[in-house]
């Protein structure tokens, strides 16, 4: 792989791990939802890095299509998660 690919792919791995750790450990619900989004972004970065073929070369369109789909699914999942979290907050007794 090219140096650029490596840089971005390794950053993708790092984002995935960073997001996973916070999704498991962060006490607040909102930050956990953000953490899952960061995990997704890590996966997207990995895929886009794999699709890259160097300057001036056409990249592989299939990972791009996968990521495009992924971004839209991620936003709908985030919206659903936020709606669930809102309902959860409403149900909890105020202190």
């Amino acid at each position: 792989m090219l140096t650029t690919q490596w840089l971005y792919a390794l950053s993708g791995c790092l984002l995935l791990a960073l997001g996973l750790r916070s999704a498991l450990l962060h006490p607040a619900l909102l930050q956990r939802i953000l953490a899952i989004n960061v995990m997704g972004s890590g996966v997207f970065m990995l895929l886009i890095a794999i699709a890259y073929r160097g300057p001036g070369m056409p990249p592989d369109p299939i990972p791009h299509a996968l990521v495009l789909t992924g971004i839209v699914v991620a936003v709908s999942a985030t919206a659903l998660a936020l709606a669930l979290a809102r309902r959860l907050t409403r149900e909890q007794p105020h202190d």
């Binding site: 650029t4 971005y8 909102l30 953000l34 989004n37 972004s41 997207f44 886009i48 890095a49 699709a51 890259y52 300057p55 056409p58 990249p59 791009h64 990521v67 495009l68 971004i71 839209v72 991620a74 936003v75 985030t78 919206a79 936020l82 979290a85 809102r86 907050t89 409403r90």
Partner: peptide, 29 residues
């Protein structure tokens, strides 16, 4: 990384709409 389709979607959806959703969610935090 020469992925303009994804860049457009990320700017509009990933940063834009997700951002709007999250900012609206701050109301009930």
């Amino acid at each position: 990384l020469l992925a303009p389709d994804v860049a457009l979607a990320e700017a509009a959806i990933g940063a834009g709409l997700t951002g709007a959703l999250l900012l609206a969610a701050l109301q009930w935090q």
